[in-house]
């Protein structure tokens, strides 16, 4: 009798257990063909320190970006006489980036150095997927630079077209974890009549960048661009250095501030890639900052009442 009772109890326990498992296993079976979503926000911003990131603007969002590079902290031009470079503005930049769509961003900007205007387009070709069907992000970037300043010598800008430069970059990134993202950026800069005639007009470069989140809103960012030794000879009379920047990036929902240190005097690719003349090892490092503010220009046309947001 006891045996039967035991059997009965164990049987009922077994069925109870089977039931409890049922809903869960059914749900798992349902979800095996789950939607593949994109891995978003490899970077918080469209820029890392000096270079662009693979991120683009969201549709109809306008980003106002103000950037500042101060003077040398050390060396001949630094020290207490210039308050470690803070008296000097080696380059200032103001620019607007607008998201035509979630994939395509157009931008315009103006730098103090060379009175350089830049016009650019950025297209997000590939997006990393959660199910690894696409392991990387790939963004294509093209930028035209126009030097508006007066020529410094009679021979400079002999032809008006010498004022223009064209930059093409392919930005490949991967968000390795929610904290760490890495990026590599091969690029070509086409310019006319460089200062040193042995310096090639078609200048190749390869950039590397990374983002390491410290907290949800604070990240350590860095980028380094290899220019010397690729298409450029190593023994030019003017010493050029590879641009290297590190920074802290703070995101506060719509604003992004970054506090940076870099050797490059200049802000825009068409200038900092070919023309960085300062070195980290010779006091040529400087402080710089970026302020970025996003504005949503148009109200969304979506009519779904479950999706409508409203600011009072």
């Amino acid at each position: 009798m006891n045996k039967i009772k035991y059997l009965l109890i164990s049987f009922s326990l077994f069925t109870l257990h089977a039931q409890a498992q049922e809903a869960d296993s059914l749900l798992k079976a349902l979800d095996s063909g789950a939607v593949a979503t994109t891995v978003d926000a490899a970077f918080k911003s469209t820029h890392v320190v000096l270079s662009h990131s693979s991120e683009t603007q969201k549709k109809h969002d306008l980003d106002l970006r103000i950037r500042h590079h101060f003077g040398d902290i050390g060396g001949r031009f630094g020290s207490a006489h210039t308050l470690y470079g803070l008296d000097v503005a080696s380059d200032l930049f103001i620019g607007l980036d607008y998201g035509v769509s979630d994939r395509f961003t157009v931008a315009v900007g103006r730098s103090k150095q060379d009175e350089l205007y830049n016009f650019s387009g950025k297209y997000r070709l590939l997006r990393q997927k959660t199910n690894e069907s696409m392991p990387i992000n790939m963004t294509l970037f093209a930028q035209m630079g126009w030097v508006a300043r007066e020529p410094l010598s009679d021979s400079e800008f002999a032809k008006y077209s010498d004022r223009f430069s064209y930059f093409f970059q392919s930005i490949i990134s991967r968000k390795l974890s929610s904290r760490l993202s890495l990026q590599v950026m091969p690029a070509l800069l086409i310019r006319r009549a460089p200062e040193d005639t042995r310096d090639p007009e078609n200048l190749f470069s390869v950039g590397f960048a990374g983002r390491m989140k410290i907290t949800k809103r604070l990240s350590f960012i860095a980028d380094y661009t290899v220019v010397n030794g690729l298409s450029r000879p190593k023994d030019l009379t003017q010493a050029y250095y590879n641009p290297f920047g590190v920074g802290l990036e703070i995101e506060t929902g719509g604003h992004i501030f970054s506090l940076n240190f870099m050797n490059s005097e200049y802000i825009v690719e068409n200038n900092f890639i070919p023309n960085t003349k300062k070195s980290w090892s010779k006091g040529g490092v400087r402080f710089g900052f970026t302020i970025s503010r996003n504005f949503t220009l148009f109200k969304s046309k979506n009519e779904d009442p479950d999706k409508k947001s409203k600011i009072y």
Binding site: K44, S178, K216, R217, T296, S300, K307, S309
Partner: peptide, 13 residues
């Protein structure tokens, strides 16, 4: 979300 930047902040932050 209506605004994609808000959606990104929702997911990230």
């Amino acid at each position: 979300f209506d605004r994609k930047l808000m959606q990104e902040h929702f997911n990230e932050n």
